[in-house]
Design a protein around this nucleic acid. Structure first.
Lengths: 196, 196
DNA sequence: GACATCTTGGACCAAACAGTCTAATATCTG
DNA sequence: CAGATATTAGACTGTTTGGTCCAAGATGTC
């Protein structure tokens, strides 16, 4: 038999949802199979094992997020710095719709797997690297636009923003409130982006 | 039979270690029992179930950390702001000794449990609240000492610091490097604590 | 239409899981 | 020292786990 619809895609979609809701270890392969209406064979054929599958979902998750990120950071209607702020605002809005639950899949998998699965650590580091790279590019545009000091280290700033954002997302889940995200934007983002 | 040494304490110690290494779901009760050299009966007698045990380890972890926090924040040899910086430096040092692995137990449990276990969410929120409260008190001392603007909202600042720190810890595990912690101190901490 | 390759279906497995139960034994309290 | 209570010991259970296996079926290629 083969390709009923596309088992690979529906498995990935189910994986993103389930890992986001419950985490890696909590989510059993049976549950993933059920949610995706896919047979066991497909799972192991396409992904090898559960860890390989999880890394594929992380990739999938990031790739699916990219268009949004790029669209906002390329929006010529705003200044570079306004685009960056807008990016986090848009994200905030999507988390609000989830009732301040389900943070970032990369954060979830990092917390669970980084220490015990070297392969996962590297894959996640690479994804964070790509994300950081985009933000850093946005910051450099802000520099060119005179919105940010020429002497700022954009890579360091981008990393600090990303790390602050991930921390805020974790706090959001715990507080079940948008306050940490608001605070990230009004306190952290603001002070990191306005020339000291 | 009873209290051979103190099973409760050694279970908690084992739990902190193991949850920190592998996370909540990954760590089986058998492993905990083995590491603590305690029998099954003790575990369920003292903690009821695995979740109750995990929340007890979180509490234990925080309580064990408190003396360090209080000692540094009360050190009259430094100014209030210097004490805060020193606190994070000392923490950085202890993470370095672990090879930049094993982040914060509260962060780990939050990421895994906050969304699916309301009881855990509340318990973790309370622990973070106590931690934040200490930092905010330190910031208020800095205000009184003239090191921090009178118009700063110390509770907001303390929350932002904590969230930034947690994000940096996660990034540390993924990068297996101290860079995120250094960056937290040189970029985030610095800009949040120097009057804009 | 035939051959090779990719994909599926799902039965099956040993190991591990969280949790229960009860008898035995310490320790505390009078 | 007697009786109540707290704690331990560990065998046991039903369920679920990640993973294997292979025959059957679909698709692409000549």
């Amino acid at each position: 038999m083969a390709r009923r619809t596309d088992a690979r895609e529906s498995l990935l979609a189910a994986g993103v949802e389930l890992f986001l809701e419950g985490g890696y270890d909590f989510t059993g392969t049976n549950t993933i199979l059920e949610r995706a209406s896919a047979p066991r064979g497909s799972f192991y054929h396409h992904f090898g094992d559960k860890l390989g599958f999880a890394l594929a979902t992380a990739e999938h998750y990031y790739e699916r997020h990219l268009p949004l990120l790029d669209r906002i950071l390329a929006d010529e209607a705003c200044t570079p710095l306004q685009r960056l702020r807008r990016y986090f605002e848009v994200m905030r809005h999507s988390y609000e719709q989830e009732g301040w639950s389900k943070g970032c899949l990369l954060g979830m998998l990092s917390q669970e797997l980084a220490d015990r699965e070297p392969e996962a650590r590297e894959a996640l580091a690479a994804l964070f690297g790509r994300w950081r790279h985009r933000l850093a590019a946005g910051l450099r545009e802000a520099q060119a636009h005179g919105e940010l000091g020429k002497d700022e280290d954009c890579d360091e700033l981008a990393s600090a923003l990303l790390e602050g954002w991930e921390g805020a997302l974790m706090a959001m889940k715990v507080a079940k409130s948008g306050a940490p995200l608001d605070r990230f934007m009004q306190v952290t983002l603001d002070r990191l982006l306005t020339r000291g």
